[in-house]
Amino acid sequence: MAGNGETNGAARGEADSARIGVLALQGDFKEHAEILKKLGVEPVEVRTLEDLTGLAGLIVPGGESTTIGKMMVSSGLLDGVRSFFYKGGPVWGTCAGMVLAASATTGERQPLLGLMNALVERNGFGRQVHSFEADIDVEGFEEPFTGVFIRAPFFEDVGPGVEVLSRIEDRVVAARGENILVTAFHPELTDDVRFHEYFLREVCGL
């Protein structure tokens, strides 16, 4: 059977570059992987528990949070990613990943990772016709960042240990904890790599 390119790459001795996982159960994981490659780190598509071994960080991409959550339960990755995180593994969730990182939702119950002390409002900005792009100010960024918000969530409330990086009015759209970053928007849909650099530098310590 054809193995995946990343594993073969590692076997060929590219051990020098850090390996960053991208959860590849569903969603725009390839877009994240492309940017990671440009930044000189090796992306690893994560579909099974074994794929989590040896990662310097993990991105939970955009997609449908209910679909990704259910597949994380059935594959054992819900507990796997939690244990990766609680051992200090750095995690970044974009959009669906931000929903999954929260400790509770305002709507119906769904599987969550619960990595961050926050209450999330799914599709908080409304249905697709209300999806938008906007230049937002981000803590620590000198220039505004173009956020692409697609049926995006926001944090309605955050608890201790969560640092807010950006808000739209009173809605939290970017935040971080010690080894976690979340964005309600999709830096992977833009050519601006500042958030990927921020994750690698500030959260993964690379």
Partner: peptide, 11 residues
């Protein structure tokens, strides 16, 4: 924003 919505449905 329109094509990005479809990107979120991939897989």
């Amino acid at each position: 924003v329109k094509s990005g919505m479809a990107q979120m449905l991939k897989g």
